[in-house]
Amino acid sequence: MYTLENVTKTYRQKERTIHALKDVSLSIPTGQLVAIQGPTGGGKSTLLQMLGALDRPTSGRIALGEADLSGMPDTKLGRIRATEIGFVFQGFNLIPTLTAQENVETAIEPLGVAADERRRRATEALASVGLGDRAHHVPSELSGGQQQRVAIARALVKEPDVLLADEPTGNLDEQTRDEIMDLLEGLHRDRGLTLVIVTHDSAVARRAERRLHLTHGTVTERA
């Protein structure tokens, strides 16, 4: 699925240069569940940005399938994000003024799907995460776990090849965390979804097939 060759990312902050990723090479096969761990500032979110086509590496090559993400213009990266990549965030990142149903619909808006088809697919996605009865609630009327389910439905509704999650359970209590992990694991298992989860939580990481450790911009494999 992913191939990274000597990927480097540096940020310039005034006189300082921050090496967020240093010469990272790895590949992630299709359908793998990968957990990325490491200390804060280690470069986890930066790596996820590279995988998610949100930003380009300073040097090195990163490919999603056949597509070379490192040399793509912004509009093409946007297209890849719209069609192939689903995101789940620590803070859920739902649009506060939109209902659950409408939040899910925003994900297929760029695909140019007709309105009734869009509605049908969003309803279906909400039902698949167990929130069929909460479609017309706004985020502030939902619990954290419910909001994260809506976000997962939003990530799934476009039927992506890969799902990227940055600390998806970081804002949730233990029981809810386990429910969300059950849901993600099920998706991985049932749909063969490639799943990359950044987490601080060893309980979460333990459920992954593969664990990567990221410190000072350098990746190491963990058994």
């Binding site: 949100l54 719209a82 803070g91």
Partner: peptide, 16 residues
């Protein structure tokens, strides 16, 4: 900022 960043992350174009 985060709202628009999220919409961009899920594929909304700048123009949109």
């Amino acid at each position: 900022t985060r709202e628009f960043g999220t919409l961009k992350a899920i594929g909304w174009s700048d123009r949109r």
